[in-house]
Write a protein that binds this DNA or RNA. Structure first.
Length: 1064
RNA sequence: GGGCGUGUAGCUUAGUUUGGCUGGAGCACCCCGCUGAUAACGGGGAGGCCACAGGUUCAAAUCCUGUCAUGCCCA
């Protein structure tokens, strides 16, 4: 026997904390997986690993919610849903954090400190907030196995990553090249765009127009640059093939004053884009010819700094075409120094320019560049370079240029764009496959896949996976110091078997230990030693390996992995499109020739209440504990789901969390309390077969709420499938608040107050029991706490072990029958109740004063609900009526505009006649066109017809698409009987308020004394009714002297005094 | 600078795919009512240049173009 437990007041924080303990004790998470084991239908989820070196904020709660929700939902549908936690532990942000802590602001400083000690600090740092993350995760109810997580710094994980890199290497997808990065020579480090973004500064520095002398003519091509230090490295000039260029001849000295160095001789010939002549040239000139850029392509010119670069066997110092050339600034000719700009580098590779540095890693010119420059820091040479050019007539003009330029956030020095050695994965080689696999993923929202990711993939570039850093997965590539043979290691075993005898076995797969491992050259003919490339991997590569590396595949768990790959579901915020979503897809495409995930939900960000993003520096990060400890996790989770579509950015509104709590959870809890308190009082056992009331036997109201439940549950499920969780939640919330609480429970209150056993009472109890269980099961994936408590109170079992009520291919459907007609009729009834209240307000009839009669005109037969409606509207007798004319008459209003034109000065007289005439008669006359007043023909144009309620009636009409018009008419007449009843209701109301004010128990008896101006206005049976309703054990109605300090009120002009005392 | 989102009442939002009734809710506010009905409920009110500017159309919050703001990613 499971009699529902009485519910107390709702304390969400205490309830949730206590449930967390219960879950742990009963191992509910474990059970919820194991219980479905027999059905043998896994649904696989992959957790995107967070980094625990920052405090979790409210924005982390939302992605964990959507992960958890889908997993719980699929579990209830009968799937086995295992959830392994993960931690992302490598990467630049970790290093930066430690560098800040230890004040190690350059690579040199780190190396002096010691790589081993530094990496040890990094390793510690990534766990700084692990406890905070664990606590947040548990408190919000995110079920994930945190005791056996995958960790990207573990040797097992790294070994799997190595294995996957070797697969790429073996397929020829791994190669060595250059990547141009913002680089600080002071700290010896290159920067990510994230770091660059925090260091932009506005600077004013010299920019120059430089003359490049063509070999086959006397003309010079004019090019512009803001970085004079890159000029010694110039190996090419880029022009736009379709841009129009001019050859011009200098014909006169400049008319206005000349700024800075540079100049031109009369007769000099210069070539530049036509559109920019006016911007660039200061001399008077004559245009000799115009031609497209394509005419310039292939021409050779003289190097500015002969000898700085070895141009032999290359295409150096020629003009080439490039799409990126525009005429928005400069001269329409782009100076190209291969190693000092990304466009430059890409163009250089394409055109076969030499890729040689003129600048060392220390930021100084390499020996042999130029006598005046060798060994000097490049940014200090700008002016000397300009002098050098000027002295040999290669400078046309200099000017000061103001722009934003990235600076090192540590040293404040300007960064140099510098081509660094780097390893790449040749993504361009698998472009078609990855686009195909992307299209096979079910994306939510769809545009994340087709547009955001699709756009990115259609411009896919090779993936630079190496970083010149210390803390990360070491690149497992060794190079022979004799024969340059490259070897990629795919396992620990392979490394150890190849290592030289005097190399140590590394204690873990991190720098500096693996750096010390040297391998015997894998080339049979070579006896050289192989040295590891000194890089670590992009940490996105780490997390991109999660699907297999979490299982240490292929070294362990082979079967397990093959059964769960590709995973069914992943979910992260939208910024992961080019992050984790991409790296997973890139790795699975190159290694497995497959997708990595079948469904991907991309979430919008949570912003602060002003629509700004939450960030530490702004100080607007909301601490989730502010709400965990106030409204509780359920309310936060429900708020997040119902607030907006998952992919829409949402402004976080603390007030909204409160609202979710107050509306959804308090209401639900009070429905639960209303049912359970009475059920436990009555010892009601929902499972007892003898007292069960079949749904067919129950009242219309019961059948209605059960039908609504099914309709809502089905919509809820459909919305879940189409990722419209917000719509699902809103509809269910509306059901709980409006249908269940505000109508079903309100209308059923008296059924449960009844102390006698009855079929009707049991029907109501069964109905509430069934509806509450279904609501709890639907809500459980979203808000796992309060629904579980209610479910436990009602059944003794956890909701998380229950099945999804809508059913699935694994579990049975468990929903009551639907009755569409009944739902329609009830909608009409509720609409009529609303209408009736409005009619009363408009007619000035207070709610407690009953009406004698009410009539419903039109619409379907709803006489089954007349009793409910009569009570709602406080009408003694409600009937159906066919004829609206019984309550309405026609009124004729003059159309003054039309009559005024016709009658002019006789208008007042006509108006008077119209007003005094019998409207029915005169209307007949007008319609028959025989109406003449004061000699004027009155037509339909001259009047307006109105239907108004006859004396003592009030009415309103509502329109429905399916049913047509339905009118409600109320009888507004009064008699002594009604006044007495109204008076009684008011006395009851005041006494009840007093009882509540005195905090009396609902069951408590009172002694009631009442004084009324004229006693006979309250009929005896109404007085009896008052005594019953207020549980008055003793009651007297008095006249004469009224004691002082007693309650008094007045209604309809009758004064009432009363006193309430508790009888002990 | 490029790609992709977002912008509707003081706040949070529905409606935009597929153009069509007076742009619909909730919170907060004001008035009234109801309540042994909870932090509740009902009726009414006030509050909208649907970001802005053009265009297409009989008709635009909705489609097109541009601008602005804001967010993410890339440069």
């Amino acid at each position: 026997m499971t009699v529902p437990k009485a519910a107390g007041n709702l304390d969400p924080v205490a309830l949730e904390n206590s449930l967390i303990r219960t879950w742990n004790e009963e191992k509910i998470f474990y059970q919820s997986i194991e219980n479905r084991r027999l059905k043998d239908s896994p649904f696989t989820f992959l957790e995107g690993p967070p980094t625990a070196n920052g405090k979790p904020g409210i924005h982390h709660v939302i992605s964990r919610l959507y992960k958890d929700m889908v997993c719980r939902w699929k579990t209830m549908e009968g799937h086995i849903v295992e959830r392994k936690a993960g931690w992302d532990t490598h990467g630049l942000p970790v290093e930066i954090e430690v560098q800040k802590q230890l004040d190690l602001m350059s690579n040199e400083a780190i190396e002096n400190f010691g790589m081993e000690a530094f990496n040890q600090k990094c390793k510690e740092s990534v766990w700084t907030y692990e406890q905070a993350w664990r606590e947040m995760t548990e408190r919000m109810g995110f079920w994930v196995d945190m005791d056996d997580p995958y960790v990207t710094l573990h040797d097992d994980y790294i070994e799997s990553a190595w294995w996957s890199l070797k697969q790429m290497f073996d397929k020829g997808l791994l190669f060595r090249g250059h990547k141009v990065l913002p680089y600080c020579p002071q700290t010896g480090t290159s920067y990510s765009s994230h770091e660059v973004a925090q260091g932009y500064k506005e600077v004013s520095e010299p920019a120059v127009f430089v003359k490049f002398k063509l070999k086959d003519s006397n003309s010079c091509i004019l090019a512009w640059t803001t970085t004079p230090w890159t000029l010694p490295g110039n190996v090419g000039l880029a022009v736009g093939p379709k841009v129009t260029y001019c050859r011009v001849k200098i014909t006169a000295e400049p008319s206005n004053s000349w700024e800075g160095r540079g100049g031109a001789e009369l007769g000099d010939e210069l070539i530049l884009a036509k559109d920019l002549l006016g911007n660039v040239l200061r001399h008077k000139m004559e245009v000799l010819e115009e031609f497209p850029g394509s005419k310039l392509i292939g021409k050779s010119y003289e190097p500015l700094f002969p000898g700085a670069i070895d141009g032999s066997d290359s295409n150096a110092w020629t003009v080439v075409g490039a799409d990126f050339v525009t005429t928005s600034d400069g001269t329409g000719v782009v100076h190209t120094a291969v190693m000092y700009g990304e466009d430059d580098y890409n163009l250089g590779m394409k055109e076969g320019f030499p890729s040689q540095h003129t600048v060392g890693m220390d930021g100084k010119f390499i020996k042999g560049t130029h006598d005046m420059l060798d060994g000097r820091y490049v940014k200090e040479c700008d002016s000397d370079i300009i002098d050098l050019l000027n002295s040999c007539g290669k400078l046309y003009r200099e000017h000061i240029y103001t722009h934003d330029y990235p600076h090192c956030w540590r040293t404040d020095h300007p960064l140099l764009y510098y081509a660094m050695d780097s390893w790449f994965v040749k993504m361009t080689a698998v472009k078609e496959q990855i686009i195909q696999y992307n299209s096979e993923v079910e994306w939510a929202p769809e545009w994340t896949g087709t547009k955001r990711m699709g756009e990115w993939l259609s411009n896919i570039k090779d993936w630079a996976i190496s970083r010149e850093r210390y803390w990360g997965t070491p690149i497992p590539v060794w190079i022979c110091n004799e024969c340059d043979n490259e070897h990629c290691v795919g396992s620990i075993e392979e490394m150890i078997s190849m290592k030289t005898d005097d190399s140590p076995i590394p204690p873990e797969l991190h720098r500096p230990y693996v750096d010390d491992v040297k391998l015997n050259c894998s080339n049979d003919d070579c006896s050289g030693e192989m040295i590891r490339e000194p890089y670590v991997m992009d940490c996105w590569f780490d997390s991109g390996c999660a699907s297999f590396a979490q299982w240490h595949y292929p070294f362990e768990n082979k079967e397990k992995f093959e059964g769960v790959f590709p995973v069914d579901y992943i979910c992260e915020a939208v910024d992961q499109t080019r992050g984790w979503f991409y790296s997973l897809l890139a790795v699975s495409t190159t290694v497995f020739d497959n997708v990595a995930y079948k469904r991907c939900l991309s979430l919008g960000h949570i912003l602060d209440k002003d629509g700004k993003k939450m960030s530490k520096s702004r100080g607007n990060v909301v601490n989730p504990w502010d709400h965990f400890n106030k409204e509780g996790s359920d309310a936060i989770r429900w708020y997040m789901m119902t607030q907006s579509a998952p992919w829409t950015p949402t402004n976080f509104d603390p007030n909204g969390v409160r609202e979710s709590y107050a509306k959804m959870f308090l209401t639900l809890w009070n429905v639960h309390r209303f049912y359970s308190d009475y059920a436990s009082l009555d010892n009601f056992d929902p499972e007892e077969k003898d007292s069960y009331v079949d749904i067919k036997e129950r009242s219309h109201l019961d059948k209605w709420i059960l039908s609504r439940m099914t309709t809502v549950a089905e919509n809820y499920h459909e919305n879940f499938i189409s990722w419209n969780f917000h719509k699902a939640g809103r509809e269910l919330e509306n059901f709980v608040i409006n249908d269940l609480s505000n109508w079903y429970v309100r209308r059923s209150r008296r059924r449960l107050w009844n102390e006698d056993e009855s079929n009707d009472k049991r029907s109501c109890q069964h109905t509430l029991h069934e509806v509450l269980l279904t609501v709890c099961r639907l809500m459980a994936p979203v808000s796992p706490f309060i629904p579980d408590q209610i479910h436990r109170d009602l059944t003794g079992h956890s909701v998380h072990l229950a099945d999804w009520p809508v059913g699935s291919n694994l579990v049975e459907r468990n929903l009551p029958p639907q009755n569409w007609v009944l739902e329609q009729e009830m909608a009409l009834v509720r609409k009529l109740a609303e209408t009736g209240r409005r009619v009363r307000v408009e007619a000035g009839r207070r709610q407690r004063l009953p009406c004698k009669s009410g009539w419903i005109v039109g619409g379907p037969d709803i006489s089954d609900f007349h009793e409910i409606l009569a009570e709602e509207l406080n009408v003694e007798e409600l009937t159906t009526e066919e004829d609206l004319d019984r309550f309405q008459r026609i009124e004729i209003a003059p159309n003054r505009k039309s009559l005024g034109k016709k009658c002019r000065q006789d208008l007042p007289a006509v108006l008077e006649l119209l007003e005094n005439a019998d409207p029915d008669n005169i209307l007949l006359e007008i319609e028959a066109e025989i109406c003449i007043l004061e000699g004027y023909d009155i037509t339909m144009e001259d009047i307006e017809l109105r239907r108004v309620e006859k004396e003592n009636f009030a009415a309103a009409t509502i329109s429905f698409e399916e049913i047509g018009d339905v009118s409600l008419v109320l009888d507004m007449s009064l008699n002594e009987d009604l006044v007495s009843k109204g008076l009684a209701r008011d006395i009851i109301r005041h006494v009840q308020a007093k009882r509540k004010e005195k905090n009396l128990d609902v069951e408590a008896l009172i002694e009631l004394d009442v004084w009324i101006d004229s006693k006979e206005q309250l009929f005896d049976n109404d007085w009896s009714h008052i005594q019953i309703e207020t549980r008055a054990g003793n009651a007297s109605i008095n006249q004469g002297d009224i004691p002082k300090k007693i309650e008094y009120f007045e209604v309809d002009g009758i004064g009432v005094n009363f006193s309430v005392k508790e009888i002990n």
